[in-house]
Amino acid sequence: MKIKIKSSKNFTLFIIMMMIFILLSIVMPSKFLTGINLQSMASQFPEFGLLALAMMMAMITGGIDLSIISISNFTGVIAALILSGSMDSSTPAGVAILFAVVAVVAVSMVCGLLNGLLIAMIGVPPILATLGTQGLFLGLAIVITKGHSVSGFPEVFMGLGSGTVIGIPVPFMIFALIAFLVSVLLKRTRQGFNMFMVGANPVVSKFSGVNNTKVLINTYMLTAVLAGLASLIMISRVNSMRPGYGTAYLLQAILVAVLGGTDPDGGFGSVKGLVMGIVILQITQSGLNIMSFSPFFKKFIWGFALLAIMVINFLLHKYNEKKRIQSMTDMKKAAKAG
């Protein structure tokens, strides 16, 4: 029954997405449905799309990760320093980029490990643990840069954030690849399966032989690595890194995760739903841009959308529950009659 409800949730999302798309295409075909606009949309969302994937994974295990933006800031600063440093020395760009990527992955893994240890080993509620590390990681980024921004990267590196291959933006391809990998992780690996189960009920999963500690530590390391990768796209696209960049993404990541059907209490969520959530957010944003609404109005819209979605989910849940009881009654009646 729940499966049906859930798939119908994804179906509703699909309808909403198509409706917004068609609406915008009809209202302003000359502006919305252009190659340039589609291309720019496809290069805008990947950095926050990766953050939303990370948020979804934390939520599936029944947690939340408030530190992803700070991790992005921290790793972004490190990558930026390595890359801009290479400009002064005679290090070849390729080596510097490799160095930067390795550093980002390594540092983000350590950040995630810290979150994971706090949550899984010590038992700190995820919201508190990541609230603390959020300040810690952002603080590190500020301390390293003394609050200044870092800029000036090798030419080749800029391709990561703003290049295209046969017309398709590189960041989009990176996002597509990672979304696919996360989907495989969630649906086809033991880690993924266990993430849902730990989120559904950690006591039962423990009694079922799942190593909760390991599953949670892995989860927070994965979310951190995704945040790290997002930072690479971020600094490449903006061509600089300033600590504090992208704080608005936190709300958007949570919004998209909830919009995409992830249960904040854990146990449910899918990449499919999340991607639709991202698309809805991005095309709405693009539509609002074209209609030249201010960024403040967008802020209002995101808050409103998040609340509206939750209220709708609440009402849908109530309705389905009613239907479920009704159908159970009918079944029992039929059984009695038969």
Binding site: I64, I127, L251, I254, L255, V258, P264, D265, S294, F296, F297, K298, K299, F300, I301, W302, G303, F304, L306, L307, M310, V311, F314
Partner: peptide
């Protein structure tokens, strides 16, 4: 939102925070 629709408080207040501030600025 919290008492009538029984929504999770963290996410609700994140949403209203954005809503209020957005309205103010706009």
């Amino acid at each position: 939102f919290i008492s009538i629709f029984n929504l999770p408080t963290l996410i609700t207040t994140l949403g209203t925070s954005s809503l209020f501030h957005g309205l103010l600025l706009e």
